[in-house]
C-alpha cells in the first residue's frame, strides 16, 4: 500500500496537468528504509514527448548523489500517461529499475491541463511483474 499526503498527491497531479500533453515525471524521496514519500522532486522529461519520458542524464546523476548524501531513496517514482490509462506500459515495465519503489501512474487523458478527473494509481514493478496496490491519501503523514 502507498500512503501519501494530500499535498504531495496534489503536487504530482498538478505537475502532470502542467506538462500535458507531454508526459511529466519525477520522484518523491524519503529517508532510506522509511517508505515515507516526503520530498517532492519534479524532474524534467528530457524526451519532452507525449509517449515517452526519461530523466535527463545529468539530472539523474545529481538526483542520486543528493539522495545518497541525505540518506534518502526514491520512495515514489511517478510519471503521467496523457492519452491512455494509468497502468504501466510495456516500456514502463522493461525499464523499471527500483524494485523497492512505488511506481505511481497519473493519467490526464480526461482532464488534459484543466481541472477534471485524473487517475492516480500505484504499482510495484519487480522482475517484469506488475502488482497494483492500494493508495491511501492522508491529510499528513503521521510523525514517526
Amino acid at each position: 500500500m502507498l500512503v501519501i499526503s494530500q499535498d504531495i498527491r496534489d503536487a504530482l497531479v498538478a505537475h502532470a496537468r502542467r506538462d500535458h500533453p507531454d508526459e511529466a515525471c519525477g520522484v518523491v524521496a524519503g529517508p532510506a528504509g522509511s517508505d515515507r514519500p516526503e520530498r517532492f522532486i519534479p524532474m524534467v522529461n528530457a524526451a519532452r514527448s507525449p509517449t515517452f519520458y526519461e530523466f535527463d542524464s545529468a539530472d539523474l546523476l545529481r538526483l542520486y548523489r543528493e539522495l545518497d548524501e541525505r540518506d534518502e531513496e526514491p520512495v515514489v517514482i511517478y510519471h503521467s500517461h496523457t492519452a491512455t490509462e494509468a497502468y504501466p506500459s510495456r516500456t514502463d515495465i522493461a525499464y523499471a529499475s527500483e524494485p523497492g519503489a512505488h511506481y505511481v501512474l497519473i493519467s490526464t487523458r480526461e482532464c488534459g491541463s484543466q481541472d477534471g478527473p485524473v487517475e492516480f494509481r500505484s504499482f510495484r514493478i519487480m522482475d517484469g511483474k506488475v502488482r497494483e496496490e492500494e493508495v491511501r491519501v492522508v491529510p499528513a503523514l503521521t510523525t514517526s
Binding site: 520522484v27 515517452f52 546523476l61 517514482i77 500517461h81
Partner: peptide, 12 residues
C-alpha cells in the same frame, strides 16, 4: 565511475 539505470518509460 557511477552506474545508474535510466529512469524512463512511457506509453511507448
Amino acid at each position: 565511475v557511477t552506474v545508474l539505470p535510466a529512469v524512463a518509460g512511457g506509453r511507448g
